[in-house]
Design a protein around this nucleic acid. Structure first.
Lengths: 261, 261
DNA sequence: CGCATATGGTTCATATATTGAACCCATGCT
DNA sequence: AGCATGGGTTCAATATATGAACCATATGCG
């Protein structure tokens, strides 16, 4: 793998941790030599992509991505456009709603609106969503290109619960159903006691760029409500896509506007 | 320079452009061979850090930083904490207020709240702030370590306007004044007709991590208002710092909480 | 139309940056 | 003291990155 690939994977790994790792941890997790890990970390730190805690010497994500993200969002305001819809959906469904985006070959949660109820599903920002075991993943796969699909189904499908569907043929059947219905269903595929419905957010080319999902505790998810959820999640996904791609893009010919500080 | 350094610099360059560059542009801007630029771009794209427009073949910042930024902000919510203060300041001052962060050796604008007035200063997110020519930069330099200071003053100081102070000794005097006052002033250092005051946002170690600044049109900035602005910007900076560093940090020992999709 | 120019993209021998085993140095534990 | 663990460094060996030259396509122009 190229060196920058290693560096970016390191960053990715770092983002998936819920505790700050030390040098040795990083090296182990990324399967790198300590010296290599260090050089990458130092280089990433130089540019603000990682930060080393001066006292604990642990490493964490730096603030450079925040800067880049703001620029990206200023030009391609996916979150800004999508979040109001996610909020609406959370209010009307009274369940946890989350938004994911396909980035670097994986589907990751980028926003969550919690259910107002006490008994609710918790999703954390940054959570990677396995394709075969989540409604979001299925919604994505159902509409993505052959290449992505094969990549997702070629490696062994992990069983996260007793209900996880791990047979490729069964997953393919679920994808066909998803296309038919317009939304996907995951019955406790990732977490026991949690049922979700999701729909893909698609670009004008038809290819999905992410998904929006409603996750409800099993006890509140009978067939009727599930299909109601499916219908609104699918409608919402469509509206997000329309607004995002319909919105006038500032890109290209913008006039220079310098400020001062 | 290391390969990852080049890749990250490329990303940085990309973030500073206001139009999407093609392969040749990227190579030229980053002073790289076309082949090298391409390999870096491909690698960055693989990980979602850049995106290539499928029709124009131009390159732009991808969505990976958005994901990382969300994670970073969930743990170290600098923007979430600071933005309300910035808004307040913009309302009370009735001038444009902007927030910058020191990242990768540069001070960059990460948030802006516009003045409600018709005649106002425009600052764009992502704008890099030259240290010697902006109030934010001076505020930062006045409190940063010797190393950073020397780095900033060692290279030739560009004159952006007729008023830009480009003599190192004069800049040092301004820094001394800044420390004395508790806030910095830039009189048309970057843009003619614009005067700014700024104060550093400092970590508990005393070192600045960024700055907050008020930028006003010259006509509205007499000595009195300027000093009033300086006082409130300095007080605000202090409060942001207290809230940011005082706020309980979730980092370290968080319990795993998986969701579903 | 045909030529010239520009841009996106690729190849492969060469040069250079990356690698990792072994190392040092603290700190903390027994 | 002795040992273990973790952060960080060194330098010869080697894998990786580089760039001049290349191809292909597209756009402009007389």
């Amino acid at each position: 793998m190229s060196t920058v690939g290693k560096a970016l994977s390191l960053l990715d790994k770092l983002s998936q941790l819920n505790a700050e790792p030390g040098l040795t941890d990083v090296a182990r997790l990324c399967d790198l030599d300590k010296a290599t890990a260090r050089r990458l970390l130092v280089e990433l730190e130089k540019h603000g992509f990682v930060e080393q805690d001066p006292v604990t010497r642990k490493y964490r994500i730096g603030s450079a991505p925040v800067r880049l993200a703001r620029i990206r969002e200023a030009r391609y305001p996916f979150l800004r456009i999508a979040i109001p819809f996610v909020k609406d959906l959370a209010e009307t469904s009274e369940e946890t709603v989350h938004l994911s985006e396909f980035v670097g070959g994986r589907l990751s949660t980028i926003h969550v609106e919690d259910s107002p109820r006490a008994h609710r599903v918790i999703v954390e920002i940054g959570t990677p969503l396995p394709f075969h075991a989540t409604a979001s993943g299925l919604a994505f796969l159902a509409y993505c290109g052959k290449e992505q699909l094969d990549a997702a189904l070629s490696r062994p499908l992990e069983a996260f619960t007793d209900h996880t569907v791990t047979e490729v043929s069964a997953v393919r059947r679920m994808l066909a159903e998803t296309v038919e219905r317009g939304f996907s269903i995951s019955d406790q595929g990732l977490e026991s006691g949690v049922v979700s419905t999701a729909a893909p957010i698609r670009s004008p080319t038809g290819l999905p760029i992410g998904a929006i999902a409603i996750a409800a505790p099993l006890v509140r998810a009978n067939a009727t409500t599930l299909h109601d959820f499916g219908a609104i999640v699918s409608a919402t996904a469509k509206r997000i896509s329309e607004k995002y791609y319909g919105s006038e893009r500032l890109a290209g010919t913008r006039t220079q506007a310098k400020g001062t500080g």
